[in-house]
């Protein structure tokens, strides 16, 4: 059995009496691709906020890479390789695209500022290469020196994903990366997502694009009103009556499932293994 890179046990988040996450038990096995779906307001972003330390948990535990991370600050969790993206962009707007990625990748010590002032900060070849790779995989190389504000929304979204990749995640948490992308960008992203797994990371994906989620995930959780109402492989989720009722809707489910098949096929055609 592979070990779980992330595991939550009874994770609960309460906002003024309302349980935005209600006793969520969820696991991401190392090296796998796990999805989380659910209707608007189900508590998906709140879940990411909770495990990355942006909101406090009112009950339960979160374990990352074998360590209880409940007491760690957000940047400490990021330092351990638990890297998130944001649903609402949140880029560094006055840094170039490349610098956005370098911020995430470059390690600094307390004395780095002294080296900076002497203009002696050592170049870190490994990180520069990693940044180039992240830019390349998301088709951002041509805009590396542009400002994020000069890019269309879809590409800005991808800068957020690239920034997370540059930070050398063990687990990358993607909050609706495909929202706001046009069809080409979205298909392209779908194609790239699984290649992330080849770079020593596990992936956790939230998205409303059912076609995308069903096609790329190994395992899917379904959240509604803060509770996990179903889980399973894409095939199981597609057939699950509770999911159909709560989320997909009878008709929509069919359409989405067909879409998923279509994407899967296109992937097999175009990505040589």
């Amino acid at each position: 059995m592979t070990k779980n890179i992330l595991e939550t046990d009874g994770l609960t988040v309460t906002f003024g009496g309302l349980n935005a996450n209600d006793s969520v038990d969820l696991a991401v096995p190392e090296g796998t691709f796990v999805g989380l779906i659910g209707p608007n307001g189900a508590g998906k972003t709140t879940f990411i906020d909770a495990i990355t330390g942006y909101v406090g948990m009112s009950a339960g535990t979160a374990t990352f890479d074998g360590e209880d991370i409940g007491a760690l600050k957000p940047h400490e969790r990021a330092g351990k390789g638990l890297i998130r993206t944001f649903q609402s962009l949140e880029l560094f707007e006055d840094l170039s695209v490349r610098d956005n990625l370098l911020v995430a990748g470059y390690p600094t010590k307390w004395y780095t500022f002294i080296l900076d002032m002497l203009h002696m900060t050592p170049k870190n070849q490994e990180i520069e290469e990693r940044v180039d790779w992240a830019l390349d995989i998301l088709n951002l190389t041509d805009v590396a020196d542009a400002m994020p504000t000069d890019l269309p929304h879809g590409r800005r979204k991808l800068v957020g994903v690239a920034r997370a990749l540059a930070a050398k995640p063990k687990l990358i948490l993607l909050d609706e990366p495909a929202a706001g992308l046009d069809t080409t960008e979205s298909t392209n992203l779908g194609r790239q997502l699984r290649t992330f797994l080849d770079h020593d990371m596990s992936v956790f994906l939230i998205d409303h694009d059912m076609g995308l989620v069903l096609s790329v995930c190994d395992y899917i959780y379904v959240l509604d009103f803060g509770q996990i109402i179903a889980q399973g492989t894409p095939a199981e989720i597609r057939e699950d009556p509770a999911v159909k009722a709560a989320y997909l809707g009878e008709q929509a489910g069919e359409v989405q499932a067909q879409e998923a098949d279509r994407i899967r096929e296109s992937q097999q055609e175009e990505v040589p293994s």
């Binding site: 990355t52 942006y54 600050k73 957000p74 940047h75 990021a78 330092g79 890297i83 998130r84 993206t85 944001f86 949140e90 880029l91 560094f92 707007e93 006055d94 840094l95 610098d99 370098l102 911020v103 995430a104 470059y106 600094t108 780095t112 500022f113 080296l115 900076d116 002032m117 203009h119 900060t121 920034r163 997370a164 930070a167």
Partner: peptide
């Protein structure tokens, strides 16, 4: 330098800065 970049990152967006470690 690297620290200066982090200064600007904090100036631009503290939430994202924390997410970048």
């Amino acid at each position: 330098g690297a620290m200066g970049r982090k200064f600007l990152a904090v100036r631009a967006n503290e939430r994202a800065a924390a997410a970048a470690g």
